[in-house]
Design a protein around this nucleic acid. Structure first.
Length: 603
RNA sequence: GCCCAAGUAGCUCAGAGGUAGAGCAACGCCUUGGUAAGGCGUAGGCCGUGGGUUCGAUUCCCACCUUGGGCUCCA
């Protein structure tokens, strides 16, 4: 959910003129006021904080008397009260008053959050907007709907505890989320759309398609089932193929490291709460499960004299990583503790950065296009606290930006969001309910090689410190498969589908039919296809077809006695995606599926 | 970690202070069927875990675990 709208400047400041047109945002902002009005009536002593419109609806933050919390039942009560207030067509009355008068007003009615907002306004602000809805009064620049009668199609969605001003060190307030639309039909469509999103949720599809599950025996670490492993391994094959073509070399580094390694890398100081520590029989020695591959690759690079002639060296490793994520953040495959990154570290000379970044962006575009997904790129630039010279940062940032431009990629810049060791490009994807997740990342690093004392001999015979580019393109295999499952709604393209062709015999007890379908299956398997025969006894052909359809098998071949007796080797093939049928010679079918799978097309 | 919810058969869910139900799936039998569910039957449960209240708890209370939505976090 986009919560970047939690900017309370929208709540205060100079008032705006009445709107030329009634937008959804205005409607929802007004609905937030209406909700606060209802809450203040129903929960005496409630303090209200801020309540903006969001992409999905609106929310308002409250502190209830006596430290109470809202329950879900309260939502029903509040929503009912809102409807009553809406029916009364109470006008939204706008006033502009002096800042001091407003401060006094909110002090008098004991609304400390509003007083705090006024106190945080810029000095030059001398008047503020105040809106009244019946007895309810809010600090607000508006604009609003003329009266509450416009707020007909409302729905309160959920409650949440949120930290005041988004800071964990502050007290926790109660936030109520809701949404509003111009009419009932739009609200119904919104609710139906959420239902649809739930159907393509990767956790649901993961169970239905028998891909994976998570267990309380190891929270955050998925169990991959045979069908899920096919998708996993197919993506791994793709990664290996492409890495080989692009001059990467595969390495393997340990899972367990002495913690000293992470002190050297800087992770111990910056990341300790996410590291799983492991005790050892060797007293006085503490080990840690690796949360990232970089230190291992640094050590590997450092095992020998390196010449500039060897560079760039591109170490790739798709290794298991563990990160001790906070329990409340775990989320299916999208946020896990057992992470498998399609990781690589490129060690290069400064003058090679541009070409390497270019190559990585090209690689990323190639992969994403092949999978039919479009990530959003974000360029994160130098943060306040950083290492390295300004000249290095200039070079690094422009190298990244240059590559994005050269590839014609749309991107947004996140100023100050880079890492302390360098700027980065992140690739983001959206899940079924609109949440954004970081997938790939490309990070330039001038610092870690120096911390590990890495060097290479340059053409000038002097030692130089290499630059490292950290990059993961899919990001994590777990997360990527999760997003991909939702993207395809479970209908994986042929090359990724766990079962590519299911063969359904019409007469399961006719020996010649059984022989025929078994031979067809074996010839498909011999050609490298994943084929199964569904000859489940006691079930009609229709039920077997339905079963394969529900498992979203791309092709279903139906073979009966008539085909066998005809003797021309023609079978009937049904495409699950289109529901169409056609008659094809078995040999042609195999050739066609092999070629479609090899093309790795999205179908 | 924090707020709000939910954990009952493999799955989806119903139920109630007196010891547990449906549909689908599984298994068995019957059905020989040409493109999305044939019929009958059988089996299946520490009602998330641990405490407490009670003659009796799966049901009420407390704690914990896991899952979901949000917050914070995501170098």
């Amino acid at each position: 959910m986009a919560e970047d709208i939690v900017d309370d400047s929208a709540e205060a400041g100079p008032p705006l003129e009445a709107p030329a047109e009634l937008t959804l945002e205005i409607l929802r902002h007004s609905a937030a006021h209406l909700m606060a009005a209802a809450v203040v009536e129903l929960f005496p002593g409630a303090k209200y904080d801020v309540g903006p419109a969001t992409e999905e609806g609106f929310f308002y933050n409250f502190r209830l008397a006596g430290g109470d919390h809202f329950s879900e039942e309260d939502l029903t009560t509040i929503e009912a009260r809102m409807r009553q207030l809406a029916k009364r067509r109470i006008p939204f009355e706008r006033e502009v008053i002096a800042r001091e008068a407003a401060r006094q007003l909110f002090t008098d009615i004991d609304q400390p959050f509003k007083v705090a907002l006024i106190d945080r306004m810029a000095e030059e602000v001398d008047s503020v907007g105040v809106y009244r809805t019946g007895d309810f009064v809010d600090l607000c620049r508006g604009p609003h709907v003329p009266h509450t009668g416009h707020l007909r199609a409302l729905r309160l969605l959920r409650v949440a505890g949120v930290y005041w001003r988004g800071d964990e060190r502050n007290e926790q307030l109660q936030r109520v989320y809701g949404t509003a639309f111009f009419d009932r039909e739009q609200l119904d469509a919104f609710i139906a759309q959420r239902e649809e999103a739930r159907r393509r949720d990767h956790r649901r599809l993961g169970a239905e398609l028998d891909l994976f599950h998570v267990s309380e025996h190891s929270p955050g670490s998925p169990f991959w089932h045979p069908k899920g492993m096919i998708i996993w391994n197919t993506l791994e094959d793709l990664r290996r193929d492409e890495n080989r073509k692009r001059g990467y070399v595969e390495v393997k580094t340990p899972l367990l490291f002495d913690v000293e390694t992470y002190k050297t890398s800087g992770h111990y100081d910056n990341y300790a709460e996410n590291i799983f520590f492991v005790s050892s029989r060797d007293e006085g020695r503490q080990l840690a499960l690796k949360p990232m591959n970089c230190p291992g690759h640094m050590i590997l690079f450092g095992t020998g004299m390196r010449s500039y002639r060897e560079l760039p060296i591109r170490y790739a490793e798709s290794s298991t990583l563990h990160r001790d994520e906070r329990s409340g953040t775990l989320h299916g495959l999208l946020r896990v503790r057992h992470i498998t990154q399609d990781d690589a570290h490129i060690f290069c000379a400064p003058e090679q950065i541009q070409d390497e970044i270019h190559g990585i962006v090209d690689y990323a575009n190639h992969l994403y296009a092949m999978l039919g997904v479009e990530p959003r790129a974000e360029l994160s630039t130098r943060p306040e606290k950083r290492l390295g010279s300004e000249a290095q940062w200039d070079q690094a940032e422009s190298a990244l930006e240059e590559a994005l431009k050269r590839h014609g990629m749309d991107y947004v810049i996140s100023p100050g969001e880079g890492t302390f060791y360098g700027p980065k490009i992140d690739l983001h994807m959206t899940d079924s309910i609109g949440r954004s997740w970081q997938m790939g990342t490309i990070q330039l690093d001038y610092q870690m090689p120096a911390r590990f004392g890495l060097s290479y001999v340059g053409g000038d015979g002097q030692d130089h410190t290499p630059v490292v580019i950290h990059r993961a393109l899919l990001g994590s295999l777990e997360r990527f498969i999760g997003i991909l499952t939702e993207h395809y709604a479970g209908h994986f393209p042929l090359w990724l589908a766990p079962v590519q062709c299911e063969i359904v015999p019409v007469q399961d007890d006719a020996p010649e039919v059984i022989r025929y379908v078994t031979e067809l299956r074996d010839s498909m398997r011999g050609a490298g296809l994943r084929a199964e025969v569904n000859d489940k006894p006691g079930e009609r052909m229709q039920a077997r077809i339905r079963d394969a359809e529900l498992r979203k098998v791309p092709y279903i071949a139906v073979v009966g006695r008539r085909d066998v007796e005809r003797g021309d080797g023609v079978v009937n093939v049904r495409s699950a995606r289109t529901g169409t049928q056609e008659n094809v010679a078995a040999g042609d079918l195999v050739t066609r599926l092999v070629s479609e799978a090899a093309s790795r097309s999205n179908g």
